[in-house]
Simulated scan of single mutants.
Amino acid sequence: MLEYLPQELRDQLEAARKRRAARKSKMRVEVNGAVFPVLRFWQGGFSLDADLCPARLRGLVDLHDGPRHVFQCLIIASEIEAGELVCEFKRATPVASRAALDYWRDENAPVGYLPKA
């Protein structure tokens, strides 16, 4: 159906669709200090606007949801499909607000020590 429309109108419709998707999503990807909006996010990857980001994207990136740092992702593959850079990651490590414990903490352990009476 879109093939009957003039190319200029198709380009404007595609630009409006990208703006709407970028505005709807608050997720951002940070790569070497550069920030790119995420258009779509799923369990195995995410997509970016191909016009705004580099042609290939690989390595370690930080994924933010608004101001909150959510994941640190290792991108293994990226390719351009229909104006979007589709990135697949090998792992997405959730970012914790505190350091991981290197010991087992019992639920009923005392919080502090009591002095001798």
Results as ranks from 00 to 15, higher is better:
101 L>K: 10
60 L>Q: 07
81 E>M: 05
39 L>Q: 14
84 E>R: 06
37 P>L: 07
53 C>A: 14
117 A>V: 04
52 L>F: 05
56 R>K: 11
41 F>I: 08
58 R>S: 14
109 A>W: 08
18 K>D: 08
26 K>Q: 15
83 G>A: 10
43 Q>T: 13
36 F>A: 03
76 I>L: 15
62 D>A: 09
5 L>S: 13
4 Y>Q: 14
99 A>M: 08
19 R>Y: 06
71 F>N: 01
116 K>C: 11
45 G>W: 12
50 A>Y: 08
68 R>K: 09
85 L>Q: 01
90 K>D: 15
3 E>S: 09
85 L>N: 01
92 A>V: 12
56 R>N: 10
46 F>R: 02
15 A>E: 12
10 R>M: 05
4 Y>G: 10
59 G>T: 02
87 C>L: 01
45 G>Y: 08
31 V>W: 10
106 D>L: 13
69 H>A: 00
1 M>H: 09
99 A>F: 06
35 V>Y: 00
24 K>T: 07
67 P>A: 08
84 E>V: 03
93 T>Q: 11
28 R>K: 15
99 A>P: 02
55 A>S: 09
105 R>Y: 05
44 G>E: 10
41 F>Y: 07
71 F>L: 13
35 V>Q: 13
106 D>E: 11
49 D>R: 06
29 V>H: 04
59 G>E: 09
95 V>G: 05
88 E>I: 08
7 Q>I: 03
20 R>G: 12
107 E>D: 13
100 A>T: 06
80 I>P: 02
12 Q>T: 08
16 A>R: 09
117 A>C: 11
